[in-house]
Nucleic acid binder design. Structure first.
Length: 578
DNA sequence: AATATCTTCAACCGCTCCATA
DNA sequence: CTATGGAGCGGTTGAAGATAT
């Protein structure tokens, strides 16, 4: 901020456009005429824009140039106004309350910066986005999970309440945002549902690449809403989804099935759930409780973050995982119920959604290249060899078996069994898996977390995908949210990394994944060429992760070609690795 | 002190939705 | 029904500052 301003100021000459420093800051671009300026705004430009808005009000940004002579395109003007010039903007670092709120909101909404901003008066989506990205990096470096355990816990508790409320709108806090946030939570539920009702999935395949599947994936993976909404989703879809999701969510999510429908037709889906429709997000929002929001948790809308004070800062975020688990149980209540995530996981493992889940998974898009690669690799590899594993896993994981293996098998099996019905990319299921896998794999602690940290989880549970979150939850939540604590508790979570997919455990795991790894490597090579494959090989994830697990490594990036952290599914993001 | 690396954040870009002609 | 323009959103970029070496 200051930076730009100062710079600009120096450079700026006069408010007159003609005088706008063309050469100094920023280039002139073709934005329209080729005359428009780009780059940092000068104080003069700011003044012009402010003046314009005073006279004409916000909006009509494209006419700014005409009326004010400002050599900026409408988009640039809007952005400048929204992010820097508009009144009531809060400048400076986020307060603790705001930070907490952001975390909470992100857990629920994912990368819905604009929506999140609606909950933070005076803050812009860009600020929040930047903050989050920074936070991700920072925590990743520190080896801390993105979301504090408390948040998860609270979320779960809150969800229970919701269940009780289950009904539809009960109270309303009036903040639709809240609703939305909850909505975001829905995906998880959906995902869960999918798992439970695999049979239902029929639609999935047909779903457009993204939306549903991606959402589901993310939900699956973690719960983090964080990314559960695929960036690629269309706006409308998003809206619909949210609404639908919300509705469905509020409805109790009993109809897993419909979740898919939602994607296609949100309203219908919503109705299906028995919610009032056309779904009115606002109305829903008004009744945050429906979604299981805790009172305190989201009252924030006004910026008051009162609730969060819990023992610390425990946020009431509803961890995706929780939701996820809950859904599995068949309802928020269930999920919310104290029953540890682990249990859910177990359930899931024991009676894995028969293949259903995977099929539903979103296309690789969400996850990114890595997923796609993995998917392809798998496909190729599968052709070559079908490991016996695959068949077994889907339904049940035998504790005795190498957990890791089970996990892997699970995922693989599903793909194969169910195929990838879907996606445009053609890798939907896989990709989903992939995304989830990391978690699962990791969660399982397969890889990363050397048993030490993940010890809490044992046996098959560990192996189960998405487990990381569960792990977290399973742990006693009483701890207050302190960095240290987080770190400790989260060490378990490391697994969730997207990398986990590549992780040694998974790929190289002694238990027999070695083959897979080889295969995958080959497949990747075939698909991507030596370059990528080599990178892939070089990643030596296993070692890195191990180190990380050990706590030795610090903030190391994912490595070349790794997916961007931001793009990772919330779930994955949830656990930050050391 | 100089250089390299990392972090932060404003701005841009691409995309999509919506309204309107 | 299609085309066009406005608006908004989310991801990414790149420069400046901060920090480390």
């Amino acid at each position: 901020m200051s930076r730009t301003t100062s710079e600009c100021e120096d450079g700026m000459i006069s408010k007159d456009q003609t005088e706008l420093p063309l050469g100094e800051e920023g280039s002139y671009d073709e934005c329209t005429n080729g005359v428009l300026k780009k780059g940092p705004w000068t104080s003069a430009e700011d003044a012009i824009l402010i003046e314009y808005v005073k006279k004409h009000g916000e909006g009509n940004w494209n006419s700014v140039q005409k009326h004010s002579g400002l050599l900026r395109c409408g988009k640039s003007c809007r952005l400048r106004w929204a992010n820097h010039l508009r009144p009531n903007l809060k400048k400076g670092a986020f307060t603790q309350e705001e930070e907490q709120l952001i975390i909470e909101l992100h857990a629920k909404m994912g990368n819905k910066w604009a929506r999140m901003a609606a909950h933070l008066p005076g803050r812009t989506d860009n600020e929040i986005k930047n903050y989050w990205n920074t936070r991700i990096k920072r925590r990743q470096r520190a080896g801390l999970p993105l979301y504090p355990p408390e948040v998860c816990l609270q979320a779960s508790q809150g969800s229970q309440q919701c269940l009780d409320i289950n009904g539809i709108d009960s109270g309303n806090k009036g903040q639709h945002d809240v609703l939305q946030t909850h909505n975001y939570g829905i995906p998880d539920v959906m995902f869960d549902n999918l798992k439970t009702n695999q049979s239902i999935l029929p639609y999935v395949p047909e779903l457009p690449d993204i939306s549903a599947s991606s959402v589901l994936m993310k939900g699956l993976c973690s719960s983090q809403h964080g990314s559960f909404m695929s960036p690629t989703m269309h706006r409308q879809k998003r809206l619909r989804e949210t609404t639908t999701l919300q509705s469905s969510f509020s409805g109790g999510m009993k109809n897993d099935f419909h979740v898919f429908d939602q994607f296609q037709d949100g309203d219908k889906a919503a109705q299906y759930f028995g919610l009032s429709f056309p779904f009115d997000p606002d109305s829903v929002a008004k009744n945050p409780e429906i979604f299981g929001e805790n009172q305190g948790s989201h009252t924030l809308a006004n910026g008051n973050f009162s609730a969060s004070k819990p023992t610390s800062e425990a946020v009431k975020l509803e961890l995706p995982s929780l939701q996820y688990a809950e859904t599995d149980l068949g309802g928020w209540g269930a999920s919310c119920s104290s029953s540890p995530l682990i249990e859910s996981v177990d359930t899931f493992i024991q009676s894995p959604p028969t293949g259903t889940v995977e099929s539903n998974f979103p296309s690789p898009r969400n996850s990114g290249l890595l997923d796609a690669l993995l998917y392809e690799a798998r496909t190729l590899s599968s052709a070559k060899n079908r490991s016996s594993d695959k068949s077994s896993n889907s339904s049940t994981i035998t504790p005795g078996d190498d957990a890791d293996c089970s996990v892997l098998n699970f995922s693989e099996t599903e793909w194969e069994d169910y195929g990838d019905p879907i996606s445009p990319l053609g890798h939907p299921a896989t990709s989903l898996f992939r995304e989830c896998t990391p978690i699962s794999a990791s969660g399982s602690s397969l890889d990363e977390s050397p048993p030490t940290e993940t010890e809490t989880l044992t046996g098959s549970k560990h192996k189960f995908g998405c487990s990381a979150e569960y792990n977290m939850k399973s742990e006693p939540v009483d701890h207050s949210w302190t960095p240290d604590r987080e770190k400790e508790s989260y060490t378990h979570l490391n697994i969730t990394r997207p990398d986990a997919l590549l992780d040694s455990d998974w790929l190289e795991h002694d238990s027999g994944y070695g083959k897979d790894q080889v295969i995958m490597t080959e497949a990747i090579s075939a698909l991507l060429g030596d370059d990528l494959s080599s990178e892939y090989k070089q990643m030596d994830l296993s070692s890195e992760y191990n180190q990380m697990d050990a706590g030795a490594s610090t903030g190391h990036g994912w490595g070349p070609g790794s997916c961007s952290w931001n793009n990772m599914p919330a779930v994955c993001q949830m656990s930050e690795f050391p």
